[in-house]
Amino acid sequence: MTTYIPQITIPHQVFANAAASVLLPIALGTGVGFSTRPSKTQDTYRLMKQPPLRPPPQVFGPAWTTLYGLMGYAAHRAITAGLNPLTSSVEGVRDAKHAATLYTVQLGLNLAWMPLFFGMRKPVAALVDIVALLGLNSYLTYQFFQMDTVAGWCFVPYVAWLSFATYLNTGVGYMNNWRITDEDLLKKRNE
């Protein structure tokens, strides 16, 4: 069982407000996306050797915006349901606080992936990050289902997409010999 760590956990006021809970991950994800220069990221994506089933780069923005919205809504529903003193037991309140900390940690791991993969071009570090993210979110989905069924179902597409993203990260890393450098990309551009 995890521990509630208030110093690193998103404040309850964010989870209590549905709009704030939904908009926070969307805003943070958008900020990280733009900080890695989207046009350069799309060029890098096109130049890397890719595994089968890779989507076009234009899919990622709408997909992640939708997933961030769903994850924020799920967190709002689960954590407010778990913290409701009228309907939740002492264990339920404790579990909701644990879930709030886990949610905050997973959001940090999620936001770290793009700078690791595209910014620093470290596919191994990005793979470690996304595997941890997938494991954490699988457990968090289970916890959300315990607190609110709708919240659990809102997390299912996120876990499915993370599974697919893990496949893509692994495939790109393997097919590019776990190196994504400007030199290698220039060679591929000139081929």
Rank of each mutant, 00 (worst) to 15 (best):
M1C: 07
D95K: 11
L23A: 14
M1D: 12
A125Y: 13
Y174L: 15
P55G: 08
T66W: 05
L67M: 10
A18W: 12
S21F: 04
G171R: 07
G29T: 06
I10K: 04
T44H: 10
V32T: 09
K187A: 12
V105P: 03
Y4T: 02
W153I: 04
G152F: 05
A99Y: 10
F164A: 14
R54A: 14
Y4W: 14
V172C: 04
P157L: 02
P56Q: 03
Q146Y: 00
A18N: 07
A96W: 11
L28N: 01
T30N: 01
Y68D: 11
G173Q: 03
Q7K: 06
A63S: 12
D129A: 03
W113H: 10
P123M: 03
V159M: 10
L136G: 14
L133T: 06
L102E: 04
A18E: 07
S21P: 09
N84D: 15
T149C: 03
T44Q: 15
A112S: 14
T149K: 13
V105G: 05
K97F: 09
T65V: 13
V156H: 08
F155D: 00
L24P: 03
V131S: 02
L116R: 00
P11C: 07
T101H: 05
G82H: 09
Q146K: 13
K188N: 04
L133N: 03
A63C: 08
L134F: 15
L70Q: 10
N84Y: 10
E183Q: 13
K122L: 09
L186Q: 15
F117P: 01
T149I: 14
T66G: 15
I10D: 01
T36V: 15
Y158K: 05
N190C: 03
Y174G: 00
T80F: 05
D95G: 09
A160C: 10
Q146G: 10
G92L: 01
R121L: 07
L168M: 15
V150D: 01
T104K: 06
T66K: 03
D182H: 11
K40D: 12
L136P: 02
Y174P: 04
G61P: 00
V128S: 06
F145H: 11
G72E: 05
K122R: 15
D182I: 00
S35C: 11
M1V: 02
N169F: 02
V159A: 10
D148W: 00
L107P: 04
R121Y: 08
N177Y: 03
Y103A: 06
V156Y: 10
V22Q: 04
F117W: 01
S89G: 13
I130Q: 06
T9M: 06
H12D: 12
I5W: 11
K97E: 11
P123W: 13
Y167N: 04
D95M: 13
F155W: 06
